[in-house]
Simulated assay, not measured.
Amino acid sequence: MWHLLEPLHALLYYAPEAFEAAASLGYGTDERWPSYFAWRAAPLGAAGPVRVASAFYSFSPAAVARYVSAAWSIADPADVLAARLRAVDRTCRTVLGEDPGLAEAAALARRAAEAAGTAGRPLAAANAELPWPDAPHLVLWQAATILREHRGDGHVTALLAAGLDPVEALVSFAAVGAAPESVFASRGWSPAEWSAARDRLAARGLVDASGAATDAGRALRAGVERRTDELAAAPWAALGAEEADRLADLLGGPWLAAIGSGLLPAENTLGIGKV
């Protein structure tokens, strides 16, 4: 379900309609990060860089501060959220078109999202508190957003339980071949910080001298992913296997449309589009 829903949410960070909306608010669009941090953090309100770095977890605090410190002096979070919804509306109309199963998919996804517990999950809670839009494509996008942040909040819990700090989480993920190390540079850690994290993992026997994961390192990451799945399971258990399977079938078309749009990067830190 994550693989099917994540590309729908992620369109916001790459669509030209979203960059146009960000520019209209006053955010720079030469790179995607000014709008990314504004779009994703706005449900938290006018949160400062410390709170945003805590919730986003894998980003360097210095990188977060670079973009978040001035974010709410450019536009109020409420205005960002309104522009975000307009951008999603335009993007989904362009990418998804008139899918006959969209209304049913949106209703099922909303039920799953409303069953997602938000205790201890700051990003899921912030998005769950927003009012639901009316149009099915917007309901589907908002449900996908709540569910992906619910899963992400749980993933942070699993990383903490495994003793992986933010940069170690990335180094260990790269070590199992999730993506080339160059892809993780987007998270803003310096070469020295990356190297120091690798040394810490090596001291725990989790990576070898080349930086590749050892058997223990692979087992630790497998445990993190398994725990993440377990912590993300409640919405789907509430929906039930039959209706979850129905939603998966209905999401096939939107998933293909999102992946086929060419907007999402082929290599990324999350594995979008991989099966």
Score class of each variant (00 low, 15 high):
A112R: 09
S195Y: 15
V64H: 14
P7E: 10
L231C: 07
L220I: 06
D79Y: 10
A10W: 07
L85W: 15
A174M: 10
A78F: 04
L138H: 08
H155S: 05
Y14S: 11
L81H: 03
L159F: 14
V224G: 10
A135T: 03
A23S: 15
L264T: 09
A38V: 00
P77H: 00
A53M: 03
L256V: 14
F184R: 07
L81Q: 03
E225W: 11
N268A: 05
A116F: 03
E129A: 15
A87N: 03
F56N: 02
G211A: 08
S186R: 14
V68K: 05
S195C: 07
A197D: 07
P191R: 13
W255S: 14
P166G: 11
S58R: 11
S182A: 15
I146Y: 03
D215W: 08
L231N: 02
E20N: 12
A175H: 06
G252D: 14
A63R: 15
A179H: 01
A47Q: 01
T228S: 12
R51K: 10
E267M: 08
E225R: 12
S73E: 15
V50Q: 15
A244Y: 07
F37A: 03
A87E: 02
A109I: 03
V207M: 01
V224C: 05
W255Y: 15
G163V: 03
D208E: 09
T145M: 00
A248C: 01
L231F: 05
W141D: 13
E243L: 08
P49E: 15
R246C: 04
R84V: 00
R84Q: 08
A23W: 04
V64K: 08
R86N: 13
G273H: 09
P136M: 14
R221T: 09
L251V: 02
L160M: 14
D199N: 12
G271T: 05
R32Q: 12
E114L: 12
T145A: 01
A209L: 10
S172D: 05
L12Y: 04
E104V: 08
V275D: 15
A47P: 00
W33H: 11
S182Q: 14
L138V: 06
L160Y: 11
G217A: 02
